[in-house]
Design a protein around this nucleic acid. Structure first.
Lengths: 233, 233
DNA sequence: ACAAATCAAATTGTATACAATATATTCGGG
DNA sequence: CCCGAATATATTGTATACAATTTGATTTGT
C-alpha cells in the first residue's frame, strides 16, 4: 500500500511504525499469538507510548492484532471456526473485487501487478518465505486498489491481512505451500482479459486452493504446533 | 449493539462515550460535516482527552467520522461517487448477510427483530425521526449479528453506519422518506422463511429502494443544500 | 473601507507522570 | 519437594503538561 496516511488522521511518522509492525506480522517474523509490548516499540522506534498505543489501535482495527484490556496487544490468533468465516468473507469480497478490477484495469495497472508478481517469484526462488508472503498480500491489495471502490478495498484489505495470519497458523507443515502464488500469474491474466465473470471465477478458485492447503478440518487438532518434535520442555 | 466492548480493548467507561457520539451521529443530531471538538466531549463526559481521542479513533475506524491531522474530527462527509461505492458494497455485504441469516435465524432471533421493528414504527408514528433511524440501523445490525459471521458482521456494520450518514446527506427534502422502514416487515418475514435466495432478493430490493430515494444522480448538483431558498447569493 | 500581515486564542499532537492491573518472584507451610 | 500466599516488578490505563499548528481577531498600510 502506498498511502497508508490518507483517510483517518495518521501522521507520516506514525506510518513508519505502523508499516514496520504490519510487515513483521505479515512476514511471519511475529507469529499469531505473539505478544507485542508497548515498551519494546517505544525503545525500538524512539517515540512515546502515546503514538505506540495509537498505532496498535490502528492495527487492531485492521484486524491483524487483538488488544485485551490490561493485557496488551497480541498478534491475532484465529480459532478454526472464525478462520472459516474469514475465508468465506474474503471470497465474497475478493470475487467482487476481481469483477470490478477486470472492468477497470489499465495497462499501467497490469504492469504494476506483473512487477509485484515477479518480485514474489524471485523471493520464492530465494526461499525468503516472509518477503514472498508480503508480496503475495501486496498483490491482493493492489488488485483491490484497482477495483476503485474505496470501502470495498478497505474491507478486502482487512480480510486479506487476517487471512495471511490464518495461513500462518494453519498451513500444513510439510506441503511446499508455494503459497499458491503460482496461481497469481493466471489471476492477473484473467483480470487483463476484462471478463468480469471469468476473473471472479479464477479468483474464487485461487481462494479455494488456499483454503484446501490449510489444516482446518478437525478443529481440535493442534498437534502440528509441536510438529518439530524432540523438544521436551 | 449490545456488546461494543468485545473485540479490541475497549473499557466499559469508554463505550458510554462511544455510544453517545455514535447515537448522536446516527440520529442526525450531528449532521455530516459537523465538527466534533475534543474539549466538548471532555467537558460533557468528564474524562480526559486521552480516552476522548481513543474513542474518536474508534469511530473513525468504524467509518462514521473522519479525522484530519491538526484539524480534528468531523462527522463523515461523503462525495456522491463515494456514496455510490458505499451503496454498492453495502448491497454485496448485506445480501450475503441475509442469505446466512435466513439459514440460521431462530424463533428468538425473529422475535427480537420484530420487537425492534415495532419500536421503529412507533417512533415513526411519533415523528421522532432520529430515534427511528437509530432503530432502523439497529435492525440491520441485528440481522448481521444473526448471520453469525463475525468479520462479515463487522464489515456490514461499518458500511450500514456510513450509509445512514449518506442518507442524511442526500435524502430528498420533500419525500416522506419513511426510511423505507415499512420494507423491514417484509424483510423479516423473508428471513424467517429460511429461503436464503429469497431473503437475499428481498434485501437487495430493500437497498435499491433506499438508493432510489436519494438525490445522487448528477454529482455536481448540490443545489438541494440551499433548498429552503429565498436566499440569493 | 478593504486587504494583507501580525498577533492572540484555541485546538490538536506528543510526551511524561501517576494510578491500576497483571505478572513474576519469594517465602512459608504442608 | 511441591503448592499457595504475599510481595515485588513490570505493564497497561488514565490524566496532565508542554509543543506545534491552526484559526480568528486586530492592526496597519494603501
Amino acid at each position: 500500500m502506498t498511502d497508508t496516511d490518507s483517510g483517518s488522521g495518521v501522521k507520516s511518522k506514525d506510518s513508519a511504525l505502523y508499516n514496520a509492525v504490519f510487515d513483521a506480522i505479515i512476514e511471519q517474523r511475529l507469529l499469531p499469538g505473539a505478544r507485542i509490548s508497548e515498551q519494546t516499540l517505544v525503545e525500538h522506534f524512539g517515540v512515546s507510548r502515546t503514538v505506540v498505543r495509537k498505532v496498535l489501535q490502528q492495527l487492531a482495527s485492521d484486524d491483524v492484532l487483538s488488544i485485551e484490556v490490561n493485557k496488551g496487544a497480541h498478534v491475532a490468533l484465529t480459532p478454526p471456526a472464525l478462520a472459516l468465516d474469514y475465508l468465506h468473507t474474503r471470497k465474497l469480497l475478493e470475487t467482487e473485487v476481481a469483477r470490478l478490477a477486470a472492468k477497470r484495469i489499465t495497462a499501467a495497472d497490469a504492469k504494476r501487478l506483473y512487477k509485484i508478481h515477479a518480485r514474489e517469484l524471485r523471493y520464492r526462488e530465494k526461499k525468503e518465505r516472509g518477503r514472498m508472503l508480503r508480496m503475495s498480500a501486496e498483490l491482493h491489495f493492489s488488485i483491490a486498489h484497482i477495483s476503485a471502490n474505496e470501502p470495498l478495498c478497505l474491507a478486502a484489505r482487512r480480510v486479506v491481512s487476517r487471512c495471511e495470519l490464518i495461513v500462518a497458523q494453519y498451513e500444513r507443515p510439510g506441503v511446499d505451500q508455494g503459497c499458491a502464488c503460482v496461481d497469481h500469474g493466471g489471476l492477473i491474466e484473467a483480470l487483463v482479459t476484462g471478463d468480469a465473470d471469468h476473473a471472479a471465477r479464477v479468483m474464487a478458485e485461487h481462494l479455494d486452493g488456499i483454503k484446501d492447503k490449510l489444516q482446518l478440518g478437525d478443529s481440535a487438532d493442534v498437534s502440528h504446533v509441536f510438529a518439530r518434535a524432540g523438544v521436551d520442555d
